[in-house]
């Protein structure tokens, strides 16, 4: 396997210190000082020296990946089961950390074995690490900004609210039924409310309530979720639509 690491530290011969004969030699064989290309014989030139991963290794990695997939699903289901059965709520952060750690472990196996990075040129690993650093900076600093709008001045915080109201007024509807009309249909309310109003118009209050109950009615009302606590349920946020919690979420 050729190793280009050495290419850079190859000591350059200094023609200034050579005798005339040495210098002529040197000029006649320009590559002689570059042995990792030409001195090591021809066998290294055709990719035969590259690492061949054994089938056993590949299958073992596949097994590991499937195991971790099952594990991450199981942990997610277990959390819901624990919440339902024991009324025990595990903080969201734990949930996120477990899922992301497992995903990272899986990713490491894919990158190291399937993508041969374990045996590959270190430079490729460096490319990957730099990229991940860039990704981290991007997501981290952006999220930090949008999560810290009220950090210093309260008066300014009132003016800067991350995200929007979700009020959605003023959109031109793009649904199929709306497209047929001559006048563009402008959505007067939030998109969610608009969809609901349209359904009520279509089915009538009673039928709609029945349908809604079919969708969500079997869920027990759960305590409202806080940013620190996962609301691990099968269903959806009960009554959230009617509460007066501002749409900004955690404000």
């Amino acid at each position: 396997m050729s190793d280009h690491k050495h290419e850079h530290d190859a000591k350059r011969p200094d023609p200034a210190t050579m005798t005339e004969a040495e210098y002529r030699d040197y000029m006649a064989d320009p590559h002689a000082f570059h042995p990792e290309h030409h001195g090591a014989g021809e066998h290294a030139h055709d990719g035969e020296g590259h690492h061949v991963t054994s089938l056993f290794q590949l299958r073992a990695v596949l097994g590991i990946l499937i195991f971790f997939t099952v594990l991450t699903v199981a942990s997610s289901r277990a959390e819901i089961w624990v919440a339902d059965t024991f009324d025990l709520y595990i903080p969201t952060l734990v949930n996120v950390l477990i899922a992301m750690s497992i995903a990272t472990i899986k990713a490491v196996f894919v990158v190291a074995i399937f993508m041969h990075l374990k045996w590959d040129n270190r430079l490729n690993l460096l490319v990957l690490l730099f990229t991940l650093m860039g990704v981290g900076l991007f997501i981290g600093l952006t999220a930090m900004d949008l999560g810290n709008r009220k950090e210093f001045y309260d008066w300014k915080g009132d003016q800067i609210v991350a995200g929007g109201t979700g009020g959605s007024a003023g959109f031109v509807a793009l649904t199929r039924s709306a497209r047929g009309k001559d006048e563009p249909e402008v959505i007067p309310t939030s998109l969610v409310e608009h969809a609901r109003n349209r359904a009520i118009q279509k089915y009538g209050e009673a039928v709609f309530a029945e349908k809604l109950a079919q969708k969500h009615g079997h869920h027990d009302p759960m305590p409202a979720r806080t940013p620190n606590r996962s609301r691990a349920t099968e269903g959806l946020t009960a009554d959230l639509f009617d509460t007066t919690v501002p749409a900004g979420g955690d404000h």
């Binding site: 969610v192 969809a195 609901r196 349209r198 009520i200 709609f208 969708k215 959806l236 946020t237 959230l240």
Partner: peptide, 8 residues
């Protein structure tokens, strides 16, 4: 256009 959504 989902009428049964629960969050804005």
């Amino acid at each position: 256009d989902y009428p049964y959504a629960q969050h804005e």
